[in-house]
Computed example of a mutant assay.
Amino acid sequence: MSDRPTPVGALLRAAPPDRLPEVAAEHLRRHHGAGRVEVLLGDLTLTGLRPLLEPAGPAGDALAARCFGSQRPVVGDTSGSRYAYLPLSVWGERLGVLSVHTSLPAGAALTDQLSTVADELAVALRAAGAVTDRYRRATRLQRLTMAAELQWELLPGRSLGDERFLVAGQLEPAYAVFGDHFDWVLDGDRLTVTVLNGYGDGLDAAVLTTVAVNAMRNARRAGANIVEQAELASDALYARYGGAAHAATLLLEIDLVGGRVEAVDAGSPRAVIARERDFHPVTLEQQLPLGMFGDSRYETQRFLLEPGDRLLVVSDGVHAATPGGRAPYGESAMLAALRRTRLQPATEAVGTVMRGLRDYHAGTDPADDAVTVCLDWRR
């Protein structure tokens, strides 16, 4: 009979979904000489890391933040023991950090072993989020509005990527967003991205956006192209609201091999390409927002990405923000913030742009909610 330990993946699959951190920690103590173990999850704003095993314990420190931002292990020695911070991520989506203090000798083999545990735990946490609220509670510092609950539940994730691309998005205000939203899906060499700005405020705007997003998903999953997606969503909104409410939407279908982009511009979201040190606004002919009129028909427009390009898409809560009568944020301040992201991955860049927007408001409350989506095409 083999005395080899049960693989951690098998242990996690057999565990109750709300006990995954404890199962991983016990495995690390038994087989990897671990002392203190902590599982840290990124909060809704991705500005802090919240502990799961000791909820009243300290939040993630600077080393954990470095691991989370770089998505690389951070290892070292302190007081005679080894520490390791391993990223918890799945298909480019950053969930958090696994922190391990161990008595085993440091080295590449130990880092690889701990990284394997982190990878298995990340996949399990991602799956378990649908059947337990434990992990969602840990990421919330306050209660969400009902509108925000709908929007967060509707999101595809916070980031997605592989060797070809990395895309990331952020909603603000995180705990009170209402009509703005983003969606994406990967199908072979085709990445579809949409950014929406639902008409109105509060729960009404969130419900409208929910109808629009699900109508586009329904069309897409039936094999429809982005024109048909826009038209079905527009018809669905018009049937429900009779033109009294609409969703300004930008739909993009990106060829991850050649960089060709097909776009349906149905309203206010704007796009800009950062290419080396230059910025190139994507100029598209705006068509009618979804749901404004019955039987609206749409056409595609095209532009091209080059290897290494960064594509930024923002809702009008970003580019058209004019706090205190200032010039719109999108005229120059947004580009200055985007310039500061040159050495950051897309997952960090969205936060930089949003922090720039908050600073631009100089302490005043935003008049609108906001979405930023950033795509790096690596090819």
Results as ranks from 00 to 15, higher is better:
Arg190Glu: 14
Pro7Ala: 07
Leu114Glu: 05
Val23Asn: 06
Val353Thr: 01
Glu38Pro: 06
Leu11Ala: 09
Thr364Ala: 13
Tyr329Arg: 02
Leu304Arg: 15
Thr192Trp: 11
Val227Gly: 04
Ala215Glu: 04
Arg220Ala: 12
Ala109Tyr: 13
Gly324Trp: 02
Arg143Ile: 14
Leu12His: 03
Met334Glu: 05
Tyr238Asn: 05
Leu160Gly: 04
Glu331Thr: 02
Pro345Ser: 02
Ala122Gly: 09
Val39Trp: 11
Arg164Pro: 00
Thr249Gln: 04
Asp278Thr: 08
Arg260Cys: 05
Gly9Leu: 10
Leu256Cys: 04
Ser296Thr: 07
Thr322Arg: 05
Ala14Arg: 11
Leu88Phe: 00
Val350Asp: 01
Val314Thr: 11
Gly259Thr: 01
Asp119Ser: 14
Ala130Asn: 06
Leu63Val: 13
Trp377Lys: 01
Arg19Phe: 04
Leu312Thr: 13
Leu288Thr: 08
Gly129Val: 03
Ser234Leu: 02
Val353Tyr: 01
Thr111Glu: 11
Phe303Glu: 10
Gln344Ser: 07
Thr102Lys: 02
Asp18Gly: 13
Leu203Asn: 10
Val195Met: 09
Tyr83Ala: 02
Arg217Ala: 06
Gln287Pro: 00
Leu144Met: 03
Pro281Ser: 05
Thr116Lys: 15
Val313Tyr: 08
Ala248Leu: 00
Ala25Cys: 09
Val257Asn: 12
Thr132Asn: 07
Asp43Met: 01
Arg220Glu: 09
Gly223Phe: 08
Arg297His: 11
Glu299Trp: 01
Arg270Ile: 07
Val257Glu: 13
Tyr135Glu: 11
Thr45His: 15
Ala239Met: 13
Pro156Val: 09
Gly330Pro: 04
Ala271Trp: 03
Gln170Lys: 14
Gly157Gln: 01
Ala248Trp: 00
Phe279Gly: 06
Arg302Thr: 15
Ala84Gln: 06
Arg4Tyr: 11
Glu93His: 02
Ser2Ile: 06
Asp365Val: 15
Val350Cys: 02
Asp376Tyr: 03
Arg355Ile: 11
Ser99Gly: 06
Gln286Val: 05
Ala236Ile: 02
Arg302Phe: 12
Arg342Thr: 11
Gly259His: 04
Ala59Lys: 04
